[in-house]
Write a protein that binds this DNA or RNA. Structure first.
Length: 262
DNA sequence: AAATTTACCAACCGCCATCAC
DNA sequence: TGTGATGGCGGTTGGTAAATT
């Protein structure tokens, strides 16, 4: 396996996306949807591989992205979810409307980890550093894909409206049945049986939000082909795309409008 | 003011899962 | 059933802005 086949093709650009490329991609998706990602570059006249287009769209161009700094509540939720599911960023991102797994991952690695360590908590195990000292299976638990990372004993956390702060009304309740919810606050850890790797990995998230199913089609329903026209005609070149999209589309009425207010 | 370090984040890489043939 | 193509995910890298010396 290895590399995506389309990446072998010649003349594919890499690195940062130019505004022109962004525009092409957004226009194309607004008009046709992404369909098969591998065909997007050709149809949209982009010298990129489909994978790259997908990533760019998901992480940056999607109109339902929130961006900006994470709120306290979001941060708390990330920590809780990380304690529950480990480095399964996509699952965590699913509970944070408008945030991408990449964004959350970056935030985790650059900020939260540090904060937790400073508070004496091991970011991998969510246990007090004093308990974890010695190294052991530190990363093992957090690495989602590792077969040894099967989450431990089951607990349930209920997250009631967590993201209202930014006018984002999301999951009225998230019920997570997880194997061993690690202690989130130093010293409050009562359950230390963190190594039951063979415990059932039952994990279920119930989310009531219907706003972010991550579908371009949903977006297109909300802004039927209007996106392209409305946003690309005669706009200043130097406008940053993210701001551009978020700002303009977000200010539109409808569900996304509500979500966007920041 | 210049050099160096740190922090942040966009994007790439490689792997796995799934699907179609 | 086997194989290749594709989508998706998590880990990692590299560029750059900000902070510090």
């Amino acid at each position: 396996m290895g590399r995506h086949s389309c990446c072998y093709k010649q003349k594919l650009r890499k690195g940062l996306w130019s505004p022109e490329e962004d525009e092409k991609l957004v226009k194309h998706i607004a008009k046709y949807g992404h369909g098969c990602w591998s065909s997007v570059p050709k149809l949209a006249d982009l010298q990129r591989c489909g994978k790259s287009c997908r990533l760019r769209w998901i992480n940056y161009l999607r109109p339902d992205l929130k961006r900006g700094t994470f709120s306290q509540q979001e941060e708390k939720l990330i920590i809780e979810l990380h304690a529950a599911v480990g480095n399964r960023w996509s699952q965590i991102a699913a509970q944070l409307p408008g945030r991408t797994d990449n964004e959350i991952k970056n935030y985790w690695n650059s900020c939260i980890k540090k904060k937790l360590r400073q508070s004496g908590i091991d970011p991998s195990t969510h246990r007090p550093l004093s308990e974890v000292e010695g190294g052991d299976d530190k990363e093992a638990m957090a690495s989602g894909r590792s077969s040894t990372s099967a989450p431990p004993p089951s607990h349930t956390i209920e997250c009631t409206p967590l993201l209202q702060a930014n006018d984002v009304v999301v999951p009225s309740s998230i019920s997570i049945s997880v194997p061993d919810l690690r202690c989130l606050e130093a010293g409050s850890c009562s359950n230390t049986s963190a190594n039951s790797a063979n415990s059932s990995s039952e994990f279920e998230l119930q989310i009531s939000s219907s706003l972010f199913d991550g579908s371009i089609f949903q977006w297109l329903e909300l802004f039927p082909s209007k996106g392209a026209q409305h946003h690309f005609d005669g706009e200043p070149e130097d406008l940053k795309w993210s701001e551009y999209l978020n700002g303009t589309i977000g200010s539109d009425d409808g569900l996304l409008g509500e979500i966007k207010k920041e």
